[in-house]
């Protein structure tokens, strides 16, 4: 088997900003002293006059983005997820969400794969926070291909969008000619009959690996990629849940309030079936390599496989 190509979604994000800079002349990119890490530096190199470094002041950055959007710009405000959704939550809610401004938030270093920096920087709560803001669109791409598509879709969409990217290099899984991204549409990646695995972000790859292992055990798993957490593709999830009767959610995020929460809310109204939420189990993370952490918190293919087996009573 050939070596799988790995690219961090933040890398694809920075490249996409630079790529689309020309066709979106109103786009301006804001950062808070993290341009090298968030990869907005790639855009800065190409369009220095349209890159605004706000210094280490995320709350102000969100407000400046709001003001810029009111002059016709399409601001993309970028920092780590911890600060974008965490520190600046109220600015995002009141200065961007409430007036429903055309601001894009590029939040990188989301989840536990931040790695060595440890729990202070591992944001496992951002999806939950952003989901509660009326009118907020939330995109959580599974790989570099999808990350690029998200940036393009966000630029074409009018209104606030929260985009979630990761630090660690992850396998490219959507590199196929028929790949098509649309906000609000989930993707059925693998059909199955015994259990539905709804995954988001880098856990989509883990879900696919787990599904392959389950197949070998004689378990047929359906795998759905939910990149748009909000608005959620309820129809696709409910249809699949009705077919398989059991649902697993998988995300690099707290099991509280993220994809798991969103799917449970949809299913309890549309197709009440047993659900197993795979994610960070209401704990803070810790330092370690991304790979070691994914293994320890059972978020790699093997860990997801084990958890699904146990859910199915096959432990």
């Amino acid at each position: 088997m050939s070596e799988v190509k790995k690219v961090a979604t933040r890398e694809a994000y920075g490249n996409a900003l630079a790529e689309f800079g020309e066709s979106y002349p109103d786009m301006v990119v804001l950062d808070a002293d993290l341009a090298a890490a968030t990869k907005t530096g790639v855009f800065r190199k190409k369009f220095p006059e349209r890159h605004i470094d706000c210094g280490i002041a995320e709350a102000n950055m969100m407000g400046i983005a709001a003001g810029l959007s009111l002059t016709g710009k399409i601001p993309v405000a970028s920092t780590f997820a911890m600060f974008a959704a965490g520190r600046a939550f109220e600015q995002v809610r009141n200065s961007i969400g409430y007036p429903h401004l055309n601001v894009k938030i590029g939040a990188t270093h989301a989840g536990i794969t931040v790695g060595e920096d440890g729990a202070s920087h591992q944001c496992n709560e951002d999806i939950a926070l952003m989901r509660t803001i009326p009118g907020m669109t939330i995109l959580n791409p599974s790989d570099a291909v999808e990350a690029r598509a998200c940036v393009k879709a966000a630029l074409d969409y009018v209104g606030p969008v929260y985009m979630r990217f990761g630090r660690a290099a992850v396998p490219v899984i959507n590199d196929r000619p028929d790949y098509h991204f649309e906000i609000g549409k989930g993707q059925l990646l693998k059909e199955g009959t015994d259990v539905t695995v709804v995954a988001t972000g880098i856990l989509v790859n883990s879900a696919l690996e787990a599904a392959a292992k389950l197949e070998a055990d004689g378990v047929s798993a359906e795998v759905i990629n939910i990149c748009t957490i909000k608005p959620l593709d309820k129809e696709l999830i409910i249809r699949s849940a009705k077919k398989t009767g059991r649902v697993v959610t998988a995300e690099e995020h707290s099991i509280i309030g993220g994809l798991g929460g969103a799917v449970c809310e949809a299913l309890c109204e549309g197709a009440p079936v047993p659900v197993c939420r795979i994610g960070i189990r209401d704990v803070f993370g810790e330092s370690g390599s991304a790979a070691a952490l994914l293994e320890k918190y059972e978020l790699d293919g093997e860990g997801v496989y084990r958890q699904i087996r146990s859910f199915l009573g096959k432990a």
Partner: peptide
């Protein structure tokens, strides 16, 4: 902050 953003814009 929004006012500053407008002035910058």
């Amino acid at each position: 902050s929004a006012a500053v953003g407008m002035a910058l814009g």
